[in-house]
Computed example of a mutant assay.
Amino acid sequence: MQSPGELRWPEGKRGCMALAFDLDGPTGDAMLNGSIWSSPEYFTFGSYGPFRALGRLLDLLQDFQLPATFFVPAWVVEHWPEQCRAIVEQGHEVAFHGYRHESFFALSPDEQHAVMAKSAEIFQRYLGITARGFRTPSGDWQASTPEVLKAAGVLYSSSMRGDDRPYCIEVAGFPPLVEIPGKWEMDDYASLAYTRNPDFPKGGDRTASYALTLDNWQREFDGAMDEGLCLTTLFHPKISGQPGRILLLEKFFAHMTSRGDVWFARCDAVAAWYMQECQHAG
């Protein structure tokens, strides 16, 4: 296979930007342990993402004509189907993100298979799609997970941190799983989340300067594009889709699109192109 360092992006572009958003809603640890049902504040904090912030974000993406991937727990699709259908109708990708944002590290292979099968059925029933991508909800997985994903028909993952270019994870009996790695510096939770309970991230009862956050994101983007790399984001509508923060995203999008040497693509397009390039090189 071709070395990722030798990649030449489509259209003669220098670098690749794959915008991605985790539409978690109120799923996660508090839902899994049941505590969310006695915490209206946290439930509504999560629900704000699909109910209110998503539309604002979709409008912004349309204004800049930018494609994006949304990793969505299937529970969110069940409870906000109209909003999730709008993602697909506007030409964006919807990909797997667990059923209720489970930790795949804590699930047995059989439990992982069950989550993937349930999610696939819900995506087909409510959205009429067969998803090709996956982002692990908890940022980790077991050694068995790549095989589980391939058995579920998944082409790519955007879960690990092993590179700043796409790479392949070999899976016995299946074609390789393409990995589109992210980085925590491009996670809006790290700088913009304000939640008192649960305290996530730890010590997260604060927000960074919006100007500093924008500067950090722009530097990460420019550095990646200057080196011809592939950058993706771990943004959350309930965090960065709020009124003041959408202005931050607007400035970030304006900065990104001011360059003419960037291929903007959905994650599934990046993975499909990477596999084709590797096959040609091999």
Rank of each mutant, 00 (worst) to 15 (best):
Y48S: 12
D29V: 04
G49F: 09
G49S: 07
Y48E: 13
D29W: 11
G49W: 11
L23Y: 04
D24P: 14
L32G: 14
Y48P: 03
P50V: 03
G49D: 09
Y48T: 09
P40Q: 10
D24A: 13
S38P: 00
S47H: 05
G25M: 07
N33R: 07
T44Y: 09
S38G: 12
D24M: 14
T44S: 11
I36A: 11
T44H: 13
G34F: 03
S39F: 04
F43E: 10
D29K: 07
P50C: 05
G49P: 02
D22F: 03
S35K: 12
F43T: 01
L23F: 09
Y48M: 14
Y42E: 15
Y42M: 14
T27N: 10
P26H: 04
F21M: 02
A30N: 08
S39L: 09
Y48L: 12
L32R: 15
F43D: 02
M31R: 09
T44N: 09
F43L: 12
T27P: 14
G28L: 03
L23V: 03
P26M: 03
D22I: 00
G49Y: 10
Y42Q: 15
L32V: 15
F43V: 00
S38H: 04
G34C: 07
M31N: 02
E41D: 14
F21D: 00
G34P: 05
E41S: 13
P50I: 00
M31L: 15
S38E: 06
P50N: 04
G25E: 08
P50D: 04
D24W: 11
W37F: 11
F21Q: 00
S39T: 01
S47Q: 06
D29T: 05
G34Y: 05
G25K: 08
S39W: 08
I36Y: 00
D29G: 04
Y42P: 02
D22L: 10
F21E: 01
T44F: 13
Y42D: 15
M31E: 15
E41C: 11
F43A: 13
P26S: 05
G46N: 04
F43W: 09
I36Q: 02
N33E: 10
L32E: 08
S38W: 00
T27Y: 10
G49T: 01
G28W: 06
P50G: 05
G25C: 06
S47P: 00
T44I: 06
P40V: 02
F45A: 12
D22E: 14
L23K: 05
P40M: 07
P40F: 10
G25Q: 09
E41Q: 13
Y48W: 13
P26G: 01
S38A: 06
L23C: 09
M31C: 06
D22R: 12
G25H: 03
N33C: 07
D24T: 14
Y42A: 15
S47Y: 02
F43R: 12
P40A: 10
F21A: 00
T27H: 11
G49I: 04
A30G: 11
T27W: 11
